[in-house]
Simulated scan of single mutants.
Amino acid sequence: MIFLIGGTSEAVPIAGELAVRGMPVLLSTATEIPLHAPLPRGVQRRTGRLDREGMLRVIRAYDCRVVVDASHPYAAEVSRCARAAAQAAKIPYVAYERPPAVPPGAPVTRAADHLQASQAACACGVPVLLTIGTKYLEPYVTEAGRRNIRLVVRILDVAQSWTACRRLGLSATDIVAGRGRLDYEETLALLKDRGIGVLVTKDSGREGGVPAKLKAAEAAGCRVVVVERPARPRPAFRDIGALVDAVGYAWAEGVFPAEGRGPAKTT
């Protein structure tokens, strides 16, 4: 069995490609939110958050031979746990790394972490729109409160996200809930409607709607603060075909080409 850790829209296509090549796949997702596409034939799914020990139990229960990490580019803890679980189980680990969408030299402010991003965003003295999820809201709420800055938050419309916002005292009028990413027109309308002066985003790639955000911010005259990606364990591939080739090799040989055999190239 291939243990495929989801968290991106690419997880289902990766699962399908692996299954087509005759490799059984267990797709693991943290929540039961519907997938972006139907589950391919030959692919099982489990749901629920896992730490290192939980992943190791799954690996052993399903007799997994390879760990494929297709979690979100910013899910650093998930990737660390996946790598550690694979090492403990003595099986190969590889990650899919979604290509970034913020080009080098783009007119944005880059921040190493959310604390730095919150300070950069609120220093401008204008309303701020957060499109970063809800896990790291606290430094922004603290800094915005200290500077008396209006904070608008775009969230996934699920109970967990609402709970996080309410716990931090955010007003319902400053919470924009929805499913899926906003396109250019929707983002531009939101920026203008709320009088936003700074947009804060992660570089979640084209699939994460980053190009639309950058274009809308430029049209609305907004500054952009980008939270940099955390480092990802290696080997990591940005091309799904190359990833699947490497997993197929590991399935047969018990080692990835990047670990010393075969021609595949990591990024």
Rank of each mutant, 00 (worst) to 15 (best):
D69Q: 01
S71G: 12
Y62H: 14
L156V: 15
Y93H: 12
T163I: 14
R46Q: 14
Y140S: 10
G221Y: 13
R181W: 07
V247E: 11
S79G: 09
R98I: 05
P257Y: 14
D193M: 13
R206H: 15
T131H: 06
A212Y: 08
L243A: 06
A84Y: 02
E97A: 15
A120C: 11
R232Y: 07
S28P: 03
G22F: 05
A252E: 15
R238Y: 09
K215N: 06
A86F: 08
V68F: 08
E218D: 13
G209E: 04
D157F: 06
A84L: 10
T8F: 02
I175R: 04
F3I: 05
C222A: 08
A95Y: 01
V102N: 03
R110G: 02
I132W: 00
C81S: 15
R167E: 15
L190G: 10
T187C: 06
A84S: 13
R206Y: 15
D69N: 05
L191N: 01
A101S: 14
A15F: 06
L137D: 04
L243T: 09
I149G: 03
F256S: 02
E138V: 13
R223S: 14
A61P: 00
P127K: 10
R234L: 14
D69L: 10
Q119S: 12
E218G: 07
L26C: 03
K135M: 11
L182W: 13
D51T: 07
P139T: 14
E218A: 14
C222N: 04
I59N: 01
I132N: 03
D157Y: 05
V152N: 09
R46D: 07
A216N: 07
V128A: 02
G105I: 05
I2D: 01
A70F: 00
F3T: 01
T134S: 09
G262S: 04
E10N: 12
